[in-house]
Design a protein around this nucleic acid. Sequence first.
RNA 1: GGAGGGGUGCCCGAGUGGCCAAAGGGAGCAGACUGUAAAUCUGCCGGUUCACGCCUACAUAGGUUCAAAUCCUAUCCCCUCCA
Length: 411
Amino acid sequence: MVEKELDKQLKSILKGAEDVLILDELKILLAESIKSDKPLNIKLGLDPTAPDIHLGHMVVLTKLRQFQDLGHNATLIIGDYTARIGDPTGRSILRPSLSPEKIEENAKTYMKQAFKIIDESRTTVVKNSIWLEPLKFSEVLNITSRFTIARMLERDDFKKRFSGNLPITIMEFLYPLMQAYDSVAIRADVELGGTDQKFNLLMGRELQKEFGQKPQIAITMPILVGTDGSQKMSKSLGNYIGVNENPDEIYGKIMSIPDTVMIDYYNLLTNLSKKEISDIQVSIKDEGLNPVVVKRKLAYMIVERLYNKDFAKEAESNFNKIFKEKSIPDDVSEYIINKDDYPLGKIKITTFLSKTKLCSSNAEAKRLVEQGGLKIDGKKVSDINFELSLNDINFKVIQRGKRHFLKVIVK
RNA sequence: GGAGGGGUGCCCGAGUGGCCAAAGGGAGCAGACUGUAAAUCUGCCGGUUCACGCCUACAUAGGUUCAAAUCCUAUCCCCUCCA
């Protein structure tokens, strides 16, 4: 009985994971948990350095959710204290530090978005300032005395900066220790993180040992590539899909990822089993299954995860309308035009486009029209001198390119 | 503290007196095609103007010149080497 349950749990936990340190310890821990019916404490730290989370963050949150679905508990650590330093991981320069107000604000939106993915009822949320702030200097010394500079410089990003004569502040050295101390404070059984977190997660293990605790298991998840299909998903690269974006947008952006990374997305962001995913791969390769069908399913599942079935269905149908039938989606946002503002009863198409923000300037509007990217009620308009008559554009839909629509309401 | 190098459009980056609204790439936008907002191909890509043109822009502020991203002066910022 225990065997079977253990097997099931391991399968789910290992799916998509890059690395488990140490696997055998994890097995023992899980077996004990099953036998004694005591859930494990799974740690995930989030630094509220930016207000939005995207599918890259969702990878590790999804893993956390899988743990919860197996009956374990999550401890989500809001790194409000550590955010003041900023994680130097992967950084070539010192991060700018954030004000406490900004951190607080980010933390709020963070949580709201995180709970779209994880189970709130099985989650404890704590801020690490609770234990980091009151630490005495002597206690800090106690912690720092257990690690060496050489050990710190093993870290690739520190090494690079050091050998490249770039500054590393002592404060940044402290960052991994603080994160490690979080694990001690909450007595974590398992800590999750991206592959770039491996060093920090291992520090947690070491410090726990120093404090006489059982060392946590570190599970790292691969880095999700962005919509460009090659670079790490990140806001600054503009290749991200935010969990707070509207369903149509999420659905569409998923459809825009290259086919080659589709399977990664399946592995990292869905709850399908390894077997189900490899079956899909086989079908595409050997049975001529059209990849677009697979991608649609992915887009659907992710919208469903982040919203619900209805939104997913709607996003799907809107996508079909726009791209398959090349028609107009159901819910088009409206633009109200006031008759009194235009005594002549007409408006030039270019000024209209820039006024509605469909285009950012008159010049851009002109280009759009010239290039044949403008449709009014499905009919292409390519005359840049075209004038809209207020009398007959009421309720008509203006379309910019393939996917931007606006319904005009004349008042 | 001393010596040297540099700051260019959304980003990277070429340009060292006129031919510079500034090469090239990326991002973005549009079109064609398609299985998609994939890939590929084509076009566009500071603002304003129907257009000629005008305005804004090569860190900032001044100056030299008929003409400055390019030369000079000051200021701010970044980097490298030496101490």
